[in-house]
Design a binder for these strands. Structure first.
Lengths: 206, 206
DNA sequence: GTCTATAGGTGGATAGAC
DNA sequence: GTCTATCCACCTATAGAC
């Protein structure tokens, strides 16, 4: 069992994932190479293959880490947010922080390349979307029964619409290099759900 | 000046575009190669380069043809549709026919790869989105002033939301290999705009 | 764990014959 | 317009030394 490192930074495999994640979010899984990651970290591609024997292994690890990280973020929201509308605002803020770095959602990008991905990555991808849809559906359901949100269709259907709309808004906004475009769409999508004002909370009106 | 062909099928360059278009919509611009197109058409890659000297040329031609084709489809809708709600239904049907063939919108796919595309393709891409947003905004504006549609924000903002939501719904639905997923989302998005019942028109209610 | 060196394949693109 | 042959760059991946 290796001793915990006392002074060094993140383990090499984590730094590999960090760089690869950014490259995939910006250029796609078919648009980046081991060579790029290696040169950026000043290591050889052979070292990369030591940590991730195949590109498929690296890709799956990327999705699984992203999934776990997103899952923790959703737990944090559940713990900290005040009400369903606030949960949705914080959820949208997760996307906003992504496009601010000139990236797409990792899984939104991979969804475009879906047909060319190896099967293990395809499965990990839908698992990520499932997580998002389940969480959104639960928030929407609670928000409606509590009176904070208003929509006509089922929470599950509305969750799918919301997920797709946020992914698509990022996709188009990034082509214009205009993150405000995304923010405007996200804010309006939340307003459509009757999630209240987005900038400052107001005391009960009327 | 070449004589018009009397008996042959579409010109070679058109058949190249047909195959390349399908491959890009399914696998992305970085996910297909001249070799694949050539073997499918039983010609050599050198012939491909005769018609489209570089892959950038081919990519730009793909977007421009797609743009022109879409523009004609929108003209047809303007001519044939009965009212704004019907126009939106027919617009969504364009997307539906795409995902039914296991494809993404050509420009939705390219938007994901945006950062890796040559500049001429990037410009052609935003021109396509501009066309869609202008058309949608005009339909939304007319529909609201005529009472057929109802939404709170500006027609331009709502057009952007709708375009992004349709692109995103396709993106996610295709990862599940489930075109019904897209259709459900599209129908609900139209209902949100107060575009009335989607299956059969009804006589004035109440 | 990291390296050098390299294998083996595929990418886009070109030359020149026909 | 289409072909064969070829170039060179890049890709993923491996072997084996350190």
């Amino acid at each position: 069992m290796p001793r915990p490192k006392l002074q060094s930074g993140p383990a090499t495999s984590e730094r590999i994932l960090d760089v690869a994640e950014r490259l995939v979010q910006q250029q796609g899984f078919n648009g980046f190479s081991y060579a790029t990651v290696a040169s950026e970290l000043h290591i050889s591609t052979a070292s990369l293959h030591y940590h991730f024997p195949s590109k498929t292994d690296l890709g799956r690890a990327l999705i699984e880490r992203y999934h776990a990280s997103f899952s923790r973020a959703l737990d944090d929201i559940d713990r900290d947010a005040r009400g369903a509308a606030d949960k949705l605002r914080r959820y949208a803020a997760l996307y906003d922080s992504v496009i601010k770095n000139d990236r797409l959602c990792l899984c939104g990008m991979l969804a475009a390349e879906f047909a060319t991905l190896p099967a293990p990555m395809q499965q990990a991808l839908t698992a990520f979307f499932d997580l998002n849809e389940r969480w959104l559906a639960a928030v929407l359901k609670d928000g409606r029964s509590g009176g904070a949100l208003d929509f006509r269709d089922s929470p599950a259907d509305r969750a799918r619409i919301l997920l797709g709309a946020l992914e698509g808004a990022m996709l188009v906004a990034r082509s214009y290099g205009d993150e405000k475009r995304f923010r405007a769409a996200a804010n309006q999508l939340l307003e459509d759900l009757g999630s209240g004002p987005r900038v400052k909370p107001r005391r009960a009106s009327k």
